[in-house]
C-alpha cells in the first residue's frame, strides 16, 4: 500500500502554497512514497523513554538586552520588494481570513 496518496500530496502542496502542476503531482506522489517508505524506518527504534533532541547545543537562556539597534532605512527595507508603494510592500488582494 502506498504510504502517501496523490490527494494527500495535493493537499500538502496547497498547505505549502505550491501551485504544483498535475504532472508534478504524479511525479512527486510516487517519489515521496518511496522516500516515506524508507524514512518510516525511524519507527523501528523503540524510543518511548528517549527524550527528543531539538537542539544540538546544550545552551539555554540566550538573551540580548532591551537596547535599540539601528534598523534598515525604508529604502533598504523595500530594496528587494517585487512591488512597493508609499513606503509599504504592495501585494495583491488578500482573501478574507486567508490563513
Amino acid at each position: 500500500m502506498a504510504a502517501i496518496s496523490r490527494e494527500e500530496v495535493a493537499h500538502l502542496a496547497r498547505l505549502s502554497r505550491l501551485a504544483v502542476t498535475e504532472q508534478e503531482l504524479d511525479q512527486f506522489a510516487g517519489q515521496l512514497d518511496v522516500i516515506l517508505q524508507s524514512v518510516a524506518r525511524v519507527g523501528e527504534v523503540a524510543a518511548d523513554d528517549i527524550p527528543p533532541t531539538s537542539h544540538s547545543v546544550p545552551l539555554t537562556n540566550v538573551y540580548r538586552d532591551d537596547v535599540p539597534q539601528p534598523s534598515l532605512t525604508q529604502d533598504e527595507a523595500l530594496s528587494g520588494a517585487p512591488d512597493a508603494f508609499d513606503g509599504r510592500f504592495r501585494v495583491p488582494r488578500i482573501l478574507d481570513e486567508e490563513a
Binding site: R17, V20, E24, V91
Partner: peptide, 27 residues
Amino acid sequence: SLEEVMSLTRDAGFGAEVKRRIILGTY
C-alpha cells in the same frame, strides 16, 4: 489573489527537489 500569486510564485521559483522536501516536511 495573493494566495494564488504566492502559490504560483513558489511553484515557479523552487526546483523539484526543493518542492519535494517542502511537501515531505509539511507532511
